[in-house]
Write a protein that binds this DNA or RNA. Structure first.
Length: 683
DNA sequence: TTAGGGTTAG
């Protein structure tokens, strides 16, 4: 730019620069204006706007601070800059400066649009209400911008009902009001109300925008309606909205949440541009649909693609590790998180607590929990449930009491952990008190998960008839898990009469449920009713119901080792067998007697002991013993419920080897230490 | 000269 610019030229230039966000040119015009001393209010306002839109808030503030006189635009431009830069509190502090301005520029609809949006971000409801009163008195509420931002403020700070009042009080609602109202209902879990708003929108709004599609895809995702989702996807393609990054990620999310992971993957592959959110969404879609290894592979690929993970990416990756009980991967993720500074994000710490407690390392979960100075409801729930699932009932209840002392309100999920803890400790009356009084006083209706905990609690205390009566007299949507809890207890407590009755009932409801057949055959095996066992097996064969083969896995030095009972392909299998035989002989010396198990029904009687030696969890445990340093805990995962014999043997292995052994079976954790299991032999 | 609603986790 040669020579000095005239006032007219500079204004025209600034106008173009503010539309194109050309920072370099903006700086250059700024320099010329300083030299020629032509920087008046309007020029300065443009400069604030340009710097703010380019994210250079320090420069914008500098221009603002040096202005001898300002008008309302100077304030609103700086405020919008702070708001978009994620500093809503700065917006309110600029408002304060504005109110003490000698020229007292009257705040207009631009100022309140940004101030109310900042109130929403900060959950500053009182301030939001004061603004509402002001805009009503001053007549600013007639601006559609203001009404929409008010609707959003009430939705985030107060509730959907208040948002609805604003919605209905508006003459001539527009596409933005409808979008906000659908999202408001979705955020509060009211899918059918969101659907009703959508129906009204169809007749009232002719032109949907890309945010409408994001909202409608969210509605399809929450209602798991992949048919509607597919129709919306087609419409998006017709209207060429798919290249929008928000819409693209919402499509991937919709397919993922509707259980169609292959369509999610195709939609992701077709994205023309991918950011951290689209990568996180496809990872979450894989995790939600049980493709856990695939999800972790995508986590690596995303970084190869030079996209850096954010807090939610780490949360998804940690939850995936929790699903796999992949402690080694979880530990390396923690190192990443520490390095990148995400330990200060509460959702990441919550996910770490969850990962450690589900990977059998409750001590590490506890360290994170204790170090957290700021905890939310989910933090407490993760810890309480973590303790309960690891058999530490006393600690779970102590943490629950701490939660109440800290004035954090328990939720539906809290009481699942609390009731599980009561079950571990045999606290029948306390459990019933929590369900019948404590929860109801808090306005939380007990659900099937809580009622199932009560059944488990009664069963564990040996009160099986009471548990049976409870199920028949309590109104609840009893599911397979509830009935299996009772049946499993019949097997453990050898209540074969009730067991027969319960199993007949379950098979009426779920005629092909493999788990139930296995429980029935286990029950007969315990009663030495081998004739009945053979009958059950025959019935299973006739119905083509196959028992899933038992598989255990253990990760050692980043290597996943998989063991199945009749699979001898592991390179160290001979060494493992040899050590296993030695150990079994050793524990026989302290009282181990091999017992038969229903898994062996098809096996000839004389081979029973031989097969028992090679159950997959025993192989994995012995592999852990010979391939990890002395004193290191051994973590094994099994796809089925542990059998009685393995449970006894591993208890004794932990005693003779002085090693801590953690087995996560399909139902719970078993932490074996010094000959004792954390499940107290009830699982 | 200035403004609003939107995608990922539990």
């Amino acid at each position: 730019m040669r020579g000095l610019v005239s006032s007219q030229t500079s204004l025209s230039l600034l106008k173009i620069i503010s539309k194109t966000n050309n920072l370099r040119l903006g700086k250059s015009v700024h320099a010329k204006l300083i030299i020629s001393n032509l920087c008046d209010i309007i020029e300065s306002n443009y400069l604030i706007d340009i710097y703010a839109k380019c994210g250079h808030l320090t420069s914008a503030r500098q221009v603002f601070d040096l202005m001898p006189n300002r008008n309302v635009v100077s304030y609103s431009s700086l405020m919008a800059g702070y708001f978009h830069d994620g500093c809503p509190s700065e917006v309110l502090s600029v408002l304060k400066i504005m109110s003490s301005d000698e020229l007292w520029p009257r705040p207009n609809e631009f100022i309140f649009a940004t101030v109310l949006a900042s109130c929403s971000d900060m959950q500053a409801f009182k301030m939001g209400q004061q603004c509402h009163a002001y805009v009503l008195k001053s007549g600013l509420s007639f601006h559609s911008y203001i009404r929409n931002v008010l609707l959003h403020m009430y939705s985030t700070c107060s509730g959907v009902e208040d948002a609805l009042k604003v919605f209905y009080s508006m003459p001539g609602v527009d596409v933005i009001s409808f979008n906000s109202m659908i999202n408001s209902f979705l955020e509060h879990g009211r899918i059918w109300d969101a659907m009703e708003v959508l129906n009204n929108m169809v007749s009232e709004i002719w032109q949907w925008d890309h945010i409408t599609y994001v909202a409608v895809l969210g509605l399809c995702a929450d209602s798991k309606d992949s048919l509607l989702g597919r129709q919306v996807h087609c419409q998006i393609l017709n209207r060429r909205f798919e290249s929008n990054l928000f819409v693209g990620s919402a499509i991937v999310d919709m397919y993922g949440k509707s259980g169609d992971s292959s369509s999610a993957r195709s939609a992701f592959n077709e994205l023309s541009c991918r950011n951290v959110i689209s990568w996180t969404t496809i990872m979450a879609a894989c995790t939600q649909n049980a493709s856990l290894e695939e999800s972790l592979k995508l986590f690596i690929k995303m970084q190869v693609d030079c996209v850096q993970p954010n807090d939610l990416t780490y949360t998804v990756a940690l939850n995936t590790c929790a699903g796999l009980a992949a402690l080694t991967n979880g530990n390396s993720l923690k190192a990443h998180i520490e390095k990148t500074g995400y330990m200060s994000h509460l959702i990441v710490c919550n996910a770490l607590i969850n990962m450690y407690s589900k990977s059998g390392s409750i001590e590490d979960a506890e360290v994170i929990f204790v170090d957290l100075t700021c905890k939310d409801t989910i933090t407490w729930n993760c810890m309480i449930n973590g303790y309960s699932h690891n058999g530490l009932g006393r600690k779970a209840l102590e943490t629950f009491h701490d939660m109440l002392v800290n004035e954090v309100s328990p939720t539906y999920v809290t009481f699942i952990g609390v009731l599980l803890a009561c079950g571990h400790l045999g606290l029948v009356d306390e459990g019933l008190y929590y369900v019948n009084h404590f929860m109801r006083n808090l306005g939380i209706s007990p659900g099937v998960e809580h009622h199932t905990c009560i059944v488990g609690l009664l069963c564990r205390a040996g009160l099986l008839d009471e548990a049976d009566r409870y199920m028949r007299t309590t109104h609840s949507e009893w599911d397979l898990i509830s009935w299996r809890t009772l049946l499993s207890a019949c097997q453990t407590h050898r209540k074969f009469g009730l067991g027969k009755k319960v199993s007949d009932y379950i098979l009426q409801l779920y005629p092909n449920d493999v788990g139930t057949y296995i429980l029935i055959s286990n029950m007969y095996a315990k009663a030495n009713r081998w004739d009945a066992v053979v009958k059950v097996r025959r019935l299973m064969r006739e119905k083509c119901i196959k028992k899933e083969p038992g598989v255990s896995w253990i990760q050692v030095r980043n290597e996943l080792n998989v063991f199945a009972s009749e699979d001898n392909r592991h390179p160290l299998i001979e060494k493992i067998h040899k050590r296993l035989v030695e150990l079994l002989d050793e524990i026989k010396g302290i009282g181990y007697v091999p017992i038969t198990d229903s898994v062996l029904h098809d096996v000839e009687e004389e081979h029973k002991e031989g097969y028992l030696k090679f159950h997959s969890e025993k192989l994995a445990i012995v592999f852990g013993l010979i391939s990890t340093p002395w004193g290191a805990p051994i973590h094994v995962i099994k796809n089925l419920r542990m059998c009685d014999d393995c449970h006894i043997a591993i208890k004794l292995f932990s005693k003779v080897t002085k090693r801590k052994m953690v087995v996560r079976d399909v139902n719970r954790f078993h932490c074996f230490q010094d000959g004792i299991c954390s499940c107290n032999d009830y699982w």
